[in-house]
Design a protein around this nucleic acid. Structure first.
Lengths: 213, 213, 213, 213
DNA sequence: CATGAATGAGAATTCATTCAT
DNA sequence: TATGAATGAATTCTCATTCAT
C-alpha cells in the first residue's frame, strides 16, 4: 500500500512546528535563553523532546528561527508604520514610538536583541537581527537626509545608536519601574523625542519636562 | 618566630588575585561568560582551580568583581574627563568620546554593559553597572539643563538612551568592521555628535557626512 | 497514534527505579554512605548517572528513599510478627528475635538505623526511622503495661533503649564475630532475653550462660 | 652551635598538640566529623594547617586520637565511679547514671560512639572504643553474676546491649527534647532502671511511671 | 619549626541529543 | 512519525595534604 501524506497530516506537521516555535518564544520572553531548555520547550508545546529534533536540527537553530521570526515580524510592522507617515521625521517618530509602546505592552523579545546568547549560532543571528533592525532606521534616515529634514550624518552610526538607545531604555534600569499607563506613555514620549533630536530634527512636540530625582 | 610573611610573598598573593581577575576579564572579553569556565580561568591565570576559590567564594562573585572593577574604573575616568571640561556640553562630548575611543582601542569591557550573564548575581551587577554608568550621564544632563545648555527633558530616559546608543554602536553590527584609525575616529565623532544632538545641544562640530553604503 | 508505551517499557521503568534503589541499598550496606557515590550506584545498577536523576531529584533523596523503604519494610514485618503473638511479652520477644535474626542473616540495613549520614536530609530521615522503629516497641510496651505484664515505666525511654540495645549488639563489636548458625542463635537469644528482662518481664526461657572470654 | 631543645620549646610543643586535640574534639562534639575539617581545627586551635601535620600524620589519625582520648577519659571515670560502689548492682547503676548525666550536661562525644565516621581508620577505632566501653560493663556484669546478684547471661551481648541502650536513648529521638533539669533526671532514672532490670536485677528504685503519650 | 597558599583529584549535578519501541 | 528514557560529557566546587619561604 502506497504511502500518501494526507492533508490532515500536513496540518499536523505545520501545527507542531508552530507550536514549538511559539513555546520557545514564550519561554525565552519570560525567562531568557537560560530557562528555555529543550525539555521545557517540549513540555510547553505539548510534544516530546524527540519531536523537536524532527523539526529543528538543534537547539541553536530553533532559537535562531525564533529570533529571525521575531525580528522579521518586528521589521514588517515598522515598515508599515513608516510607510503610513508623510515624511521621514514622522516615520522615525512613529517607528520608535510603535516599537517602544509594543515592547512595554507585555513580555516580548526586546531583550533578545541585546542579550548575550548561549550558542554562537544564536549570537551570530542576534547580530544580524540588530543589523536588520538598524537598516530600517537607516532607510528612514537616508530619506530624511535626502529631503533635507535631517542634517547629513553617519547613517550607520546613527541607526545603530537609535536601536541601542531605545532597547537600552526598555531593558535597562528604568524599564521595569514604569508600570502605569501614564508612566509608559511618558517613557515612550521621552525616548521618541530623544531619538528625533538625536538625528537632528528639532522637536516640535513637548517633551516630558519632569526632571525627576 | 620561624615564619614571617615576606614582601615577596605578599606580592605573590596580590599578584595571583590580579592574575585571576585579569584572566577572567580577558576570557570574558574574548568569548563571553560562556567561555570563562573556572578551569579556563585557572589555566589562563596559571593557577589551579582550587586557588581561585581561595580568592573568590564562587564563580559568580568572581565575575561580579570583574564587572564591578570594570565599571568603577570606567566611571572614575569619565568623571575625571567630565570635570576637566568647561561646561555640560563639553563634558558630555568628552565623556562619550573618551568611552568610545577607549572601547575601540582594544579588547575591552563594552560587553560588560550589554551581556546577558549566566548567573543571576552577575545579572544583578550588570543592571547596577548600567545604572551607575547612566548616573554619570544623568548628572551631566542635569547640570546642562540647569544652566540652560540643554532643554528640559526626562533625565533618566535620556541617560539610559545615551548609554544604550554608544554601547550598541560599539558592540553592534558596525563596531567590529571599523579597524583603521581613521574609521575609528569617524565612528567616535559620529556617536558623539549623535548624543549631543540627542540631548538638544546644537552641533557646532561638523559631523561625518559620509552616508556610507 | 504511532507511539504507545508498551508493557515491556513500563517494566523497564519500574525495573530501573528498583535497580537503582537496590544498587544504592547494596552499596550502603556494604560500605556505608561514603562508598555509595552516584557514579558507583549508577555503575552497580547498570545505568548512567543521568538516569539516576530521572528517578531521584538528588543523591540525598535517593538515600532517604532507601532508608524509608527499609524502615517501612522492617516495621511492617515487625507489626505482623507482633500481631501473631498472644500477648505483649510474646510480641516483644518475637519482634526482637525476628529483627535480630534477619539482620544477622546477611548484608542488611541495620546500619540504616545507626549510621551518621553525610547529608542533612538523610540524617533527618534517620532520626525519623529510629523514631518509627521505637514507636513499634512503644506500642507493645504500652499494651504490656496496661495488661499488667510489664511494670509501669517511661515508655519512650524504654523503647529507645530497646532499639539501641539490639542495633548496638548487631553492629557493635560482637556482631561480625558470630558467623556460625549456632553462635547467631545464641546471640539472638541473648539479646531477646536482655530486652525482656529490661522491660520487667521475668525470663522463663533459659539464657545463654556462656560467660565467654 | 649545638641545637638544644629548651624546656620552653618542649612546653610549646606539648601545648600545640593539646590545643589541636581540644579544638578537634570541640568541633566534632559540636557539629560532627563533617564540620571538623583540618582548616577549621587549625583555626580553632590557633595554629596553621601545616602544624597539624607536624603532630599528626593525617586527619584520620588525629580523629582516632580524639576518640581514643575521649573514651579513655570516659572509661577512667566509669571505673572510678564503679569502684566507689558497694556491689555490682550499685556499680552498674552508678556507671550508667554517671555517663548519661554527663552526656546530657553538655555537648560531648556521646554521638562519636554511634556515628558512622568518614575514614575507615576512625571507624575501626570507633569499634574499638565501643568494645572498651562495653568491657567496663562486662566486668561489672561478670562480678554481679559471680556474686549472684545478676542471673547468668551472655556477658558480651548484655554489655553491648547496655552500651547501645544508653547511647541510643541519648542521641536518639528522645534526647534533644529533654532540656529541663527535671526532665533530664527523669531520663537518667529511666535509662538506669531499664539497664538494671535488663541485667536481671530487680528494681528497688521507683521508676518514672509517666506513661507519656 | 611554623606558616598558609597552592594543589588537584574527586563528587554531584545538568541537559542537549539519540534511538529503541 | 512520535515518544521520552537514557546517555555521558561538561562544569562547579571541596578539602586533605604538601612545600617553598
Amino acid at each position: 500500500m502506497a504511502y500518501r501524506r494526507t492533508r490532515l497530516m500536513e496540518e499536523r506537521l505545520a501545527d507542531n512546528r508552530k507550536r514549538i516555535l511559539r513555546a520557545a518564544r514564550g519561554l525565552i520572553a519570560k525567562g531568557g535563553f537560560r530557562h528555555a531548555q529543550i525539555a521545557a520547550v517540549a513540555s510547553e508545546a505539548g510534544v516530546s523532546t524527540g519531536t523537536i529534533y524532527r523539526y529543528f536540527p538543534s537547539k541553536a537553530e530553533l532559537f535562531v528561527e525564533v529570533l529571525t521570526a521575531a525580528v522579521e515580524h518586528e521589521i514588517a510592522i515598522l515598515r508599515e508604520v513608516i510607510a503610513a507617515q508623510v515624511d521621514a521625521r514622522a516615520g522615525l517618530q512613529a517607528a520608535v514610538a510603535s516599537f517602544v509602546r509594543r515592547a512595554l505592552a507585555g513580555p516580548n523579545l526586546a531583550w533578545a536583541f541585546i542579550a548575550e546568547p548561549a550558542e554562537p549560532e544564536v549570537d551570530a543571528e542576534r547580530i544580524r537581527a540588530r543589523k536588520l533592525l538598524g537598516d530600517v532606521f537607516k532607510a528612514v534616515l537616508k530619506q530624511g537626509v535626502a529631503s533635507g529634514q535631517f542634517p547629513s550624518q553617519n547613517l550607520d552610526a546613527s541607526a545603530a545608536c537609535i536601536v541601542g538607545a531605545f532597547t537600552e531604555a526598555l531593558v535597562g534600569p528604568i524599564g521595569p519601574s514604569h508600570t502605569s499607563v501614564r508612566d509608559k506613555e511618558r517613557l515612550v514620549n521621552a525616548i521618541t523625542v530623544f531619538c528625533l533630536r538625536a538625528v537632528g530634527s528639532g522637536s516640535p512636540m513637548s517633551d516630558d519636562a519632569d526632571a525627576s530625582s
